[in-house]
Write a protein that binds this DNA or RNA. Structure first.
Length: 112
DNA sequence: GGTGTGACAACAA
DNA sequence: TTTGTTGCCACAC
């Protein structure tokens, strides 16, 4: 499988419970600047055995990427709410919930 | 190789 | 705030 995909999945796995990240942020951390859209593609083909918290990835605005009211959007909202992330009108307040990776996260989480 | 397509982002109005 | 436009770039045809 494409090593870029592995890197992206690993990065998403590092997002802690109760926090979220944007597509662009994940791309940057994975060493793939300006490739937010690749992250989106990547998330829809996660292998089942991987257990990647895809639902913690949102648009830079805090909006859920799926159309509001869609089944996928509902599912994502429920998963976020279940770990304490407040979702109103298909959107999260990034000010409150955006993940700020520590130096340790970057040095030890993204290497393998 | 050209072309169209994204679970995007930044900006304008 | 919400909507539209433009830039972006790896992929799949």
């Amino acid at each position: 499988m494409n090593p870029q995909y592995q890197k992206i999945w690993n990065t998403v796995t590092l997002i802690p419970r109760g926090k979220v990240a944007s597509y662009g942020q994940v791309a940057d951390l994975a060493g793939l600047p300006n490739r937010a859209r690749l992250v989106g593609k990547c998330l829809k083909c996660i292998p089942e055995n991987k257990l990647v918290p895809w639902y913690r990835v949102l648009r830079s605005t805090g909006q859920i990427a799926f159309p509001s009211g869609s089944e996928q959007a509902k599912k994502q909202r429920d998963l976020l709410m279940s770990e304490g992330v407040l979702v109103l009108n298909n959107r999260v307040k990034m000010r409150n919930f955006q993940w700020e990776p520590s130096l340790n996260d970057i040095l030890y989480g993204l290497t393998y």
